[in-house]
């Protein structure tokens, strides 16, 4: 662990989100804190199995929203429903509404490719393409038919991902020759190169050491100025350190004996960690959960 406090933002319980201003985040862009995406009564099915049931929560603009909860409670599933990555899983189906700028992402005439161009994703396992570092970052630009100043935009993205200084001399070498933490930052660079609106991150630090983790956490603070971030994490200190809002999920067994993921509580991170409304949340964050 790094030498930071467990909860870096111990704000008065009723303070507005702005009270959680992050270091350096002084000039908040306009629209800050307004609802950008909204899940209402979202259930996700894999075949007949309802993996997550009845989830409703907002994703606020230029804020970092964390999803925490025990393994298998459906955090990744919900995250993937936000940019229609579940479409790639055969048999997966989403019920309910996921809106982005008020539009239903699952409406019939919505093109999932367009959705993903606005809502990018960083995966749990670093997965750079077996291409050069440059081509990894340029890939998204090329598929989006961006031809001008590719070099500049690659540099900008690598700088944005705090990787430029480490790779500027070897852009032509394979992205797979980087360390795990560098690969993950390469994947972040690849995602921000296309300037998405929202970045979804599924346990982006789970394969990384504390130093690489803190680099990526610092990076998230930087990125939040320009992007809206949703992060899944197993590490509660991380959620407490980086996020403004936290959603706590758990798995519940219903009357029929089937396990479903449920959203237990969504609130300001400060509240979740200092004064949770639900007993289950409290048990989980204090480590009393089984």
């Amino acid at each position: 662990m790094t030498d930071r406090p467990l909860v870096n933002v111990v704000a008065p319980v009723d303070a507005p989100p702005a009270g959680y201003a992050l270091p350096g985040a002084v000039d908040q862009p306009t629209g800050y804190g307004s609802t950008l995406m909204e899940l209402s009564k979202v259930s996700v099915f894999y075949g007949d199995y309802e993996a997550v049931r009845d989830t409703s929560m907002p994703v606020r603009k230029h804020q970092i929203t964390a999803m925490i909860g025990p393994s298998g409670c459906g955090k990744s599933t919900i995250l993937r429903s936000l940019n229609r990555m579940n479409d790639l899983v055969s048999g997966a189906r989403v019920a309910g509404r996921v809106t982005y700028h008020g539009q239903d992402l699952y409406a019939r005439d919505v093109d999932p490719i367009q959705v993903r161009r606005h809502i990018g994703m960083v995966f749990q396992k670093p997965n750079p393409f077996p291409k050069s570092i440059f081509d990894n970052v340029a890939y998204g630009l090329r598929i989006n038919k961006i031809k001008d100043n590719i070099g500049d935009r690659v540099e900008e993205a690598l700088r944005g991902a705090a990787l430029w200084d480490e790779v500027k001399g070897k852009l032509k070498t394979s992205g797979l020759a980087l360390s795990g933490g560098q690969q993950q930052r390469l994947c972040i660079a690849r995602t921000i190169a296309v300037r998405p609106d929202v970045i979804l991150m599924d346990e982006p630090c789970s394969a990384l050491d504390p130093i690489a983790t803190s680099k990526i956490e610092d990076l998230m603070h930087e990125l939040a100025k320009q992007y809206t971030i949703v992060i899944v994490t197993h590490n509660m200190q991380q959620a407490a350190r980086v996020s403004h809002y936290t959603a706590f999920f758990t798995a519940e067994v219903d009357q029929a004996g089937v396990r479903h993921g449920r959203l237990v509580e969504f609130n300001d991170t400060g509240k979740i960690f200092t004064n949770p409304a639900d007993k289950r949340t409290e048990d989980y964050i204090t480590g009393r959960f089984g």
Partner: peptide, 8 residues
């Protein structure tokens, strides 16, 4: 998946 997530 990485490619799809970039909008390919």
């Amino acid at each position: 998946q990485a490619s799809a997530a970039l909008g390919a």
